[in-house]
Design a protein around this nucleic acid. Structure first.
Length: 241
DNA sequence: AAGGTTAGCAACCGCCTTTGT
DNA sequence: CACAAAGGCGGTTGCTAACCT
């Protein structure tokens, strides 16, 4: 079938987002939602492609994004989920609340892959990171100069005035997203990890189902396969990585 | 101190899937 | 049922900052 280009690229701005663009996008979505990404930039007065707006929102501006370094638990979860699911980043992301597929993908390619490589080739020590700390999360630095974001940062969780979301009071311990109708307790990680070695699937039955975290129906299917793998005992061997 | 190299991450691209007509 | 539009996903790229020599 014919495929129209994602958008007309003439007059479309590309590259890093400015703070003004971010604020415009956030304000528009807070007011009108994002029922139609392609129409959104025009409605909001943004010179951006609808896809770009969506990506920016999903990966950066969404109020329930958890930013900052990944914890060991999160990294372990990614490794195990990747062993089960492969490069299905969105599915993996659905099991890591507050993390985006893009972020997980980046972490995988920059940290975890190396970590696995080094641990498989040689178990001595870890892949020494060349950098000491992640650079502060700032939005793009553009011709407009570095911008300070009205959005999340590890030190300053989002307290956006988004009407549909309520951020967790503490990102370290608990994340609760009322609009998403789920809560993540401290036990999430232990359950997530235990899930991979416990074929009973009790974690899911306990209400920590990813389905409640994501409306995506594809998770149903994925859960099926995860369970199937677990029951087949494949996970046990994979988890020994 | 300067230049080169590497790592990290945001953003883009193109394809596939889903939904609407 | 066929087609088109829109959404979503994974791979890749390009820029920036940190590190090394």
């Amino acid at each position: 079938m014919g495929r129209s280009p994602c958008c007309d690229k003439t007059g479309i701005k590309r590259g890093p987002w400015t703070a003004e663009e971010d604020m415009t996008l956030v304000a528009h979505i807070e007011q009108h939602g994002h029922s139609n990404w392609r129409a959104l930039p025009k409605q909001a007065g943004l010179l951006r492609c609808g896809k770009s707006c969506r990506l920016r929102w999903i990966n950066y501006l969404r109020p329930d994004i958890k930013r900052g370094n990944f914890t060991d638990e999160e990294e372990d979860a990614i490794i195990q989920l990747h062993a089960m699911l492969g490069n299905r980043w969105s599915t993996i992301a659905a099991r890591l609340p507050g993390r985006t597929d893009n972020e997980i993908k980046n972490v995988w390619h920059t940290h975890l892959k190396k970590r696995l490589d080094s641990s498989s080739s040689k178990t001595s020590g870890q892949a020494a990171p060349k950098r000491k700390a992640k650079k502060p999360v700032a939005a793009a630095s553009t011709a407009d100069g570095p911008v300070s974001m009205p959005v999340s940062s590890p030190e300053q969780p989002i307290s956006s005035s988004a009407t549909d979301y309520s951020m967790a009071s503490s990102l370290e311990n608990t994340a609760s997203f009322t609009s998403e109708e789920f809560q993540i307790e401290d036990s999430f990680w232990s359950e997530t990890l235990a899930m991979t070695v416990d074929s009973s699937g009790s974690a899911m039955e306990a209400g920590v189902t990813p389905n409640s975290a994501s409306p995506s129906s594809s998770n149903d299917e994925m859960d099926f396969w995860v369970r199937l793998f677990m029951q087949a005992g494949e996970v046990q061997s994979l988890s020994q990585i």
